[in-house]
Nucleic acid binder design. Structure first.
Lengths: 344, 344
DNA sequence: CCAAAACATGTGAACGGTCACATTTCTCAA
DNA sequence: TTGAGAAATGTGACCGTTCACATGTTTTGG
C-alpha cells in the first residue's frame, strides 16, 4: 500500500494520566473535563484545568479519533482545477475544533482521494467538481458513507445535497441585457464545455437567442480552471475570435478573469469597449469594478454559497439521515461600463 | 476545553484482523504488507493484498498516528491575511500519503492554531506570516517541537529555516529602473507597513533615493492582505495620492493586484499610463501582462518558493537536527508597457 | 550434513484516549 | 433518622494499529 511508515520520535507525550496524577483524580475525570461533561464538580474541574495548563497538556486527537470515529476534519476537494474563490472553514467550525484538509485532484486520483479521506475518518466532504459526470449512487458509493455536499450546479442529481447558482438564469440575465441594448450578434468565449456550468451557459445562450429569432454568433471554447489559465485563455480565445472575422457587436466571456484577457485582446486590436463592442462576463470578482472599463457582469455570491454548503454539511453530519436537498442561488446582473446601447 | 465530543456511528470497520482472517495470516503480517516491509514472501503479500481489496479495507490513520506519532499531515498557516498565491502540496508528497491542513489565523488565535496543530500531531508547519514580529526562540516554543519552515522574508531570524525573496533587491530593481528612465519624483502606494516585506520595501525606496540625492515622493499606506482588499486599496490609495496634489512622475505600487486599482484610478483622472505617469509594481501575477497597459513589475517565483519551502520542511521532518538555513530568492525585473522614459 | 545466519511469521503489550458500568458521596423529603 | 435518587468519581475493556520480541522455517557455507 503506502510508503514505509517510519515511527516518529518517542518523546514521552504528557497524557491524560499525567494530568490525573497531578490533579489527584482518575483519568476518567480528566477525560470528562476535556469533553465538558456536566458531571464534574467545579472545584475538581478547576484543579484539572490548572494541571493541564501547568503540564502544557494537549489532548491527542489520534486517540480521540480512534474512539469516537470522528476526526473533526472536513475534507474539501476540487476536481480538475482550483477553486475560483475562497473556501474558508466557517469561524464557528474552527472554534469548535474543526480543521479543513484541501485537496486538488484529477479524474484519475478522485477515488484515491476519497479513500484517503475515509482513511483519515474525515467527518464530511465538500466537493467542487463541475466536470464530474457521475451517477449519484456511484458517487455516494465512492464516498464510503461520509456525508457529502456538492458545491456546484449539479443539476439533475437529487440524492445528494448541493448548493449552486442558477446558471440558466445567469445566462438569461446576461443575454437579455445585451438584447435590451440592441445587440443581435453575440459572440462567446466559453469555459471548458465539459464543465457542467460552462456547458449549461453555452447551450442556454443558443436556446435563448433562437427563442428570440436570432442566430448565435461565433464562439470559442476557453479554459478557466485556474486564474492563470483564465487570464491567458481569455486573451487567446478573443484573439482567435477576432481572427475568424465573423462579425459581432457583443462578447460574452465565461468569467471576469477571462474578461481581463479579452479586454486586453480587444484593446490590442484597437477595438474600443464598449463603443465598438460590448463585453459582459460572470462572477463579479473583486477586480471587475477596476478594469478599464469596469465590467458589466453577473454576480454570484460565492460567500453565501460557501456558508450554506458548510451549514448543510454540518446538518448532515449531525443527522446523517437528513433528506438530501438542493439549493439554487439566484445571480444578479451588475451593470457597469463595458456594455452599451448599440449604434452609439 | 473543547466542545462535547459526540461519538460517531459505531459501524464495525473492517480491520487488519478481518484481512488477516481472510488471507489466513496473522494481523502482524497484514501490518507488514501495509507498511511495505521487505520480510514478506511474495505469495503471502499477494494473498493479503487480494483480501484487502475484496474487503475494501482502508488502514485507519488514527490508529497509525497513535503508534507512529506521525500524522502525515502538513499544517499550512497564514497569519493575518490570505496567501497571495497558491500553496499546493507537492505531488510527490500527496502520493506518499501526505495531506495539508490550511488555516488562516490572526495574532490572537495564532497560539491556539499551533496548539491544535500539535493536538493533531501534524508532522510539519509551513508558515506565512509577514506581520509576525516575534523572537525565534519564542516562535519555536509555540511550535511545540514541530518542524517549521517560514515562507517569508524573515530577515534576521537565523534559528528558523525560511525561504523568501530579497525585498531589498526587488525594490532596488524597481527604483533603478525608474531612475534609468529619468524619473525623479517617485510616489508610492505601499502594502501594510507592519508587514515586514512592505516595510522593508518602503524604507529601501527612501534609502535608495537618498543615496542618489533624491527626495522621496508622496506615499500612502495600503492593504494587500487579500485580493479583494488589494484591488480596492490600490484604487483608493491612488485616489488619495492624486488628491494630495504633490507632483510625481512615477508610481510604485506594492503588488499587481493593487496595480489594477491604481491603473483604474489614474484612468479615471484622465492620466495616461505611461505617457504621463509610469507605473511599476511587484509580483508578476498572472494578470500583469493583460492589464491596459501591461505592467512593468518585479517577478517573484512563488512556485519555486513553494517547492523549496516544502522541500526544506520534509528534510527537517526526516532529520529534525538539520541546521536551520535561510534561502533568499532573487527577483527579476520584467519590463512591459506601464513604464516609459520621462519627457516623451 | 549440520550449525549459523537470514528470512518468514506469530504473540502480547503498548499508543492515549473514550465507553460502559461500578462505586462512592451528597442531597433531600418522608 | 433514613432511604432513595442524583451527582461525582473510579475501574476495566476496547478502539485499530505498530512495536519488541519470540518462534518456526529456510538458506548458506564449511
Amino acid at each position: 500500500m503506502g510508503k514505509q511508515l517510519v515511527s516518529g520520535p518517542k518523546k514521552q507525550q504528557t497524557t491524560i494520566r499525567d494530568v490525573a496524577r497531578l490533579s489527584d483524580v482518575s483519568y476518567q475525570t480528566v477525560s470528562r473535563v476535556i469533553n465538558n461533561s456536566p458531571n464534574v464538580s467545579p472545584e475538581t474541574r478547576q484543579r484539572v484545568l490548572r494541571a493541564m495548563r501547568s503540564l502544557n497538556y494537549k489532548p491527542n486527537k489520534a486517540a480521540q479519533m480512534l474512539n469516537t470515529n470522528k476526526s473533526q476534519i472536513i475534507q474539501v476537494i476540487t476536481l480538475e482545477g482550483k477553486f475560483p474563490f475562497n473556501i474558508p472553514l466557517p469561524e464557528a467550525a474552527g472554534k469548535a475544533g474543526y480543521s479543513a484538509i484541501y485537496a486538488e485532484c484529477t479524474m484519475d486520483t478522485f477515488a484515491e482521494t476519497l479513500d484517503t479521506a475515509a482513511s483519515r475518518m474525515v467527518d464530511g466532504i465538500i466537493l467542487y467538481a463541475p466536470k464530474l459526470e457521475i451517477d449519484d449512487d456511484e458517487l455516494l458509493e465512492l464516498c464510503n458513507g461520509i456525508p457529502l455536499v456538492r458545491r456546484d450546479y449539479a443539476i439533475g442529481s437529487n440524492k445528494i445535497t448541493w448548493v449552486g447558482f442558477d446558471q440558466v438564469r445567469a445566462t438569461e440575465l446576461a443575454v437579455q441585457h445585451l438584447l435590451d441594448l440592441g445587440h443581435e450578434q453575440i459572440a462567446e468565449v466559453t469555459g471548458d464545455l465539459n464543465a457542467i456550468n460552462a456547458h449549461v451557459r453555452h447551450s442556454t445562450v443558443r436556446k435563448f437567442l433562437k427563442l428570440h429569432g436570432l442566430e448565435p454568433g461565433p464562439s470559442v471554447e476557453g479554459d478557466y480552471t485556474t486564474y492563470e489559465r483564465a487570464n491567458r485563455s481569455g486573451y487567446e480565445c478573443t484573439v482567435e475570435l477576432l481572427a475568424r472575422g465573423e462579425p459581432f457587436t457583443a462578447l460574452m466571456v465565461a468569467n471576469d478573469s477571462m474578461a481581463i484577457g479579452a479586454l486586453y485582446a480587444l484593446y490590442e486590436h484597437g477595438i474600443h469597449v464598449p463603443d465598438e463592442i460590448s463585453l459582459i462576463s460572470f462572477d463579479n470578482a473583486a477586480h471587475a469594478q477596476f478594469t478599464i472599463p469596469p465590467l458589466t457582469t453577473v454576480n454570484f455570491s460565492f460567500d453565501v454559497q460557501n456558508k450554506l454548503a458548510f451549514q448543510f454539511l454540518f446538518e448532515l453530519i449531525e443527522d446523517p439521515d437528513t433528506k438530501p436537498h438542493q439549493h439554487v442561488l439566484l445571480p444578479e446582473l451588475v451593470v457597469r461600463q463595458s456594455t452599451r446601447q448599440i449604434g452609439w
